Simulated assay, not measured.
Amino acid sequence: MRISRIVLAAALGGALAGPALAEEARKTVAITAIVEHPALDATRDGIIAALKEAGFTQGETLTVDYQSAQGNPATAAQIARKFIGERPDVIVPISTPSAQAVVAATRDVPVVFTVVTDPVGAQLVRSMEAPGGNVTGLSDMAPVGEHVDLIAEILPRAKRLGVIYNPGEPNSVTMIGAFKEAAARKGLAVVEATATKSADVQAAGRSLAGKADAVYVPLDNTVVSALEALIRVGAQADLPIFSADTDSVERGTAASLGFDYFELGKQTGAVVARVLKGEKPGDIPVSLASGTNLVVNPKAAEAMGFAIPESVLGRATKVVGK
Score class of each variant (00 low, 15 high):
A99G: 04
A105L: 03
V148I: 13
P167Y: 01
K180S: 12
D118N: 12
P167R: 14
G137D: 05
D140Y: 00
G210K: 02
A99Y: 00
R107F: 05
Q123T: 15
L219V: 15
A199W: 01
E86K: 14
Q100H: 05
A189K: 15
I164F: 09
I91D: 02
D89I: 09
D108R: 13
E153Y: 02
G187K: 06
S98V: 05
L150R: 03
D213V: 02
N171W: 00
V109A: 10
E86G: 09
L227Y: 06
V191D: 02
L227E: 02
A130Q: 15
A214T: 11
V217Y: 11
E228G: 12
D220R: 04
T222I: 04
L155I: 03
V224M: 14
P167I: 14
G162C: 01
A130N: 15
R126N: 15
V217E: 10
I94T: 02
F83I: 07
T196A: 14
A212H: 01
K211W: 11
D149P: 06
V144K: 06
G162D: 00
G187Q: 04
D140C: 07
P88G: 06
K197Y: 01
D149Q: 12
K186M: 09
K180L: 09
M128D: 11
A104Y: 06
R157V: 08
P170Q: 10
V144T: 15
G132K: 13
A229Q: 14
R87L: 11
V217N: 10
A152I: 03
I84E: 07
I154G: 01
A122V: 12
